[in-house]
Amino acid sequence: MMKPILKFAEPVMGTVASVHVVADRVHSQVVTAVGRVFGELHRLEALFSTFIKTSEISRINSGELSLLDASPEVIEVMDACTWLEHVSDGAFVARRPNGGLDPAGFVKGWAGQRASKYLAEFGLDNWLINIGGDIQTAGLNADNQPWSVGISNPHNSDELRFSLDVIDQAVATSGTGARGLHLWDAKGRPVEALGSMTVVGPELRWADAFATVAYVKGLDGVAWVEQFPGYHALAITLSGDLIAPAWAVSSI
């Protein structure tokens, strides 16, 4: 039986964040929780955006602020970015050629996951948050089924190329798509070897970052993602074919 669902959308971080909550709680609680989620996203945008002159990242880049004096969130993000640069053999880039910081490739997914903790804190079990295409799900949808996430056709964003039914998982897709060329390889060349790369896995912060890396790596990226237990990549080629790995169980 279909349960009631409450839907919210908020422009933030240059895109739109959507939250869908299966309303098995009092509505006012849901509204409060989602308000906290959006508030946290705005707070993190103000901290990290390179388009906002007063953000900590902008102040670090202008020399006004030392990274050593930055807030714990900035330290955490740059720490993760450094690890990603290492583990990706340089495919992940969070620094500009001039040495300035640009952790945008990590912040959106990380912020989405971090903000979604307010939904759990308010006792909400079944929800989905989508930050401009980077999705974290929890529990089941209004039909008591796994959340079904459609993946855009990179050649026509009005169409879906495939979908994934997931429970308690995140889905993130990297591609040039609507924002035009925005990814570069280690030599500073724009990347457009694949239509798009999608990563599914437990945590949005890693799914998003791994999708970015795997997209830069091209077809090798599908196997690269498999080294991370629980994370899997699916690529759409320029000709529209779908490339997927055999999804392995992490036997912990």
């Binding site: 240059g14 799900t137 459609g150 855009s152 964003s157 897709t173 990297s174």
Partner: peptide
């Protein structure tokens, strides 16, 4: 589907 994943959309 309940959500769409793809290259980031502008607002």
């Amino acid at each position: 589907v309940q959500a769409v994943s793809g290259a980031t959309l502008t607002s």
